[in-house]
Design a protein around this nucleic acid. Sequence first.
DNA 1: CACATAGACTTTAACGATATACTTTTAACG
DNA 2: CGTTAAAAGTATATCGTTAAAGTCTATGTG
Lengths: 363, 363
Amino acid sequence: MSSSGNRVTLTSIARKLGVSAMTVSNAYNHPDRLSEALRERIFETTGRLGFHGPDPVGRSLRRQRTDEVGVLYSNPLSYAFDDPAAVSFLGGLSSVTEEADLGLLLVPAAGGGESSERDPRAAAQAAVDGFVIYSMSDEEPLLAAALQRRLPVVVVDQPRKEGVPFVGVDDEGAARMAAEHLLDLGHERFAIVSFGLAPDGREGIADSDRQEGTAFHVSRMRLRGYRAAMEEAGLPWSEVPVYECQGSAKELGYWAIEALFRSEQEPTAILALSDQLALGAIEWMTEWRISVPQDVSVVGFDDIPAAASADPPLTAIHQDHAEKGTMAGRMLVAQLHDEDAPSAEPLATHLVVRGSTSPNRKR
Amino acid sequence: MSSSGNRVTLTSIARKLGVSAMTVSNAYNHPDRLSEALRERIFETTGRLGFHGPDPVGRSLRRQRTDEVGVLYSNPLSYAFDDPAAVSFLGGLSSVTEEADLGLLLVPAAGGGESSERDPRAAAQAAVDGFVIYSMSDEEPLLAAALQRRLPVVVVDQPRKEGVPFVGVDDEGAARMAAEHLLDLGHERFAIVSFGLAPDGREGIADSDRQEGTAFHVSRMRLRGYRAAMEEAGLPWSEVPVYECQGSAKELGYWAIEALFRSEQEPTAILALSDQLALGAIEWMTEWRISVPQDVSVVGFDDIPAAASADPPLTAIHQDHAEKGTMAGRMLVAQLHDEDAPSAEPLATHLVVRGSTSPNRKR
DNA sequence: CACATAGACTTTAACGATATACTTTTAACG
DNA sequence: CGTTAAAAGTATATCGTTAAAGTCTATGTG
C-alpha cells in the first residue's frame, strides 16, 4: 500500500515534497525560518506518512548532546526503589531534571549476576550529557569509568574526590550528635549497627581496622563521629561492638540485633547507620519483649518517612534526601548550562528526638 | 600538550595506529576478529589518549537501537517517587530491564508549568527502543504521540487500547470485592473517595455522568465495581457520594473526608480508590475522635507497605505493584527480542482484611 | 601444485539529523 | 532608480559508528 519499505525520515519527507531536508528540520526546530504555508504543508505530509519528528538519535549525534542525565547507583538499580532514602533522593533529582527538560536515565550495571561487582562498561555505554553518582564506594570501577568520560558529574554522599562537585552532609558531625544524645541520657553500654564496610559480604563484628579501612566514606565518617563522642565521654571505643550488615534493609537490622544480643553484653543504647536498620532492630526487640525505649534506646540515621510513624517513633538524625536530590540536580544542570554551580556547602542535619530514646535506667 | 584539540574517536585512534576504524571498533565489539596482539596495542593507545569506548550515540544511530526503554507517566515525574505504588512498580520494572541490560529512561514531560498538560513532544524526543506507559488517561496526547512512534509498547493499568499489550488487574471485580466486604458487615451508608476523574482540577462530589465520563479507565471500573455491589444489595447508587480529589496523596484523602463529613449524612463505611486516600481519611477521623473501625469502616485499594503498619492496619484490596512492573518489563523485553510475550492475563488481586473494618453498629 | 579455507584486516556505504554559509526573491526606502 | 535588507530556502559537510562484503596472506590437503 504505502510507498517503499523504507523508514520515514526527514530526508524522505523532503524528497516527497520537493524541498530540502533542512527545511523540514526547520519546520520542527525553527518555525520562523520558513513560511507558515510551507510549514503546514510539511506537517500535513508528515502526518500522512506517519513521521513523528526528527529522530532523537540522529539529532543527538549531530548536536553532540542527548538531553539526558545518567544516574549511577552502587547497587542493582532495583534496590534503589526499596530504599526510602534513595527514593526521596530520586524524587528531588527528577523534579529538577524534569524542569530542565532532561531525561533521567537509570543506568543498568547488572554485571551479569547478583554479585556486587558492577559492570564499568555501563558508564561508557550510557548516552548522557552528565552523571549523578549516588553513594558509591571509593574504589568502585564504575565510578572511575564515569569520571573518565569527562562529562559533567556530581557525586552524592560518597566518595569525596578532589575536584569533583559533591553533595552531602557532615556525616561525622551528625553521628556525633546522635551519640551525644544517648550519652547525655546516661547510656554507657552501646552497640552500633552498620551497613557493609566492604564488598566481601562479611557480616558480624567489625574491628577498628576494618572500620577505618572501609571504602565507604559515609560509613567511615559516621563511625568516627560515634567514636569521637564516646572517647570524649571516656568510654573505650574498643568495647563498643560494631555489627556490620550486608546492606541497609530492615531485616538486616533485625538479624544484626539478634546476633548482638546473643553474643555480647546487652547494650542499653543502639546507634544505627540507617533508619531501616534501626527499625529492624526495634522489631526484633519488640518481638522479644525488650522494651524500646525503657530497656534499650535506639537512634537511627536519615529520618525517612516511616521513622515518624513507627512504634515507637524513631529518634533519628534528620537529613533531607529530597533536597539532596534537588541540589545535585541543580549542580549538574548548572554545569550543563555552563553556569556557576550553586554553593557546595554540606547540607544541614539535625537530631529529631522521638520516642525511641530515654534515660538509661540500668546504672 | 596533547595532539590536536579534536575529540578522540574510533577514527582518530585508528588513524594514529595506522589501522582501519573498523578494526578499532572490532577490538571492542568483536574481539575474535583481530589478533590478540593488535587488540592490546589498541587498548594501550585508547587508554593513553583517554578514549573510553565507542560513542553510544554514534553506535545507536548505526545499530538502530539504543538499549534504553522509556517510562511515561501521566503526572510530573517527580510525583512518581511520592507514590508508593509507583515506586514498587518501578522497582519491579527496573529489575527486569536491568537484567536485560537496558537503561530505564524516565521521560520528562513537564510541559513547561505545573499544569496537567504533558508535552507530547516528550515522547517524540526520547531516544528509546520501546515505552512502558504507566497509568494514563484515555485521551492523553502524550500517549498518542508514543503510540505513533510504532515502537514496542506496554500499557500498565490504563488506558486499555485494542491491540496494545496491557498489564493490569480486574479493577471492577476487585472494587466489587471491597464493597461486598463492607456490605457483608452490614454497612448501608457509604461514601467513596476517588482520585481525579478529569484534568479540569475539579474537586467535590462527582455525579454519575462524571463518573462514567471519566477518561481514566481504572477509576471508571472501580466505581462500576462499587456500584454493582451496592445495587445488587439493593442500595441506590445515587445516594452514595463520590468525592473526587485531585490526585492520590494522603492529604487529599484527609480533606476529602472532612468535606464529606461536613456536608453529607455521615457514612459508616468508606471506600477509597487508593490506600493513600484511605490513610488520609483515617487520619482526619482520628483527629476528630471518630473511631476507625468502631464508628466508621474504611477499605483502601493497593495494599501499599504502609497499609499494614498503619493504625489501625488498613483493610485493602491487594495488588502486587512490583509484579506489575516485572510483568510489564518482561512483556516489553519479549517484544524487543521478538519473542513470544508472556501471557497478558489480568494479575490477581485479593482482599486483605485488617483492622480498619468491622460490623456496622448503627443500624 | 592447484585449491580450498581460515584468519586478519580494509573498504564502502550508510544510519538521520542539523549548523553554517550561501543564494534567490521580494519589499522598502531615500 | 539603485541600494539595502529581510524572508524563504538550499547546498554542503559533518557528527561517530558499524554491517556487509571484499582483499590479502598463510596454511593445509589430496
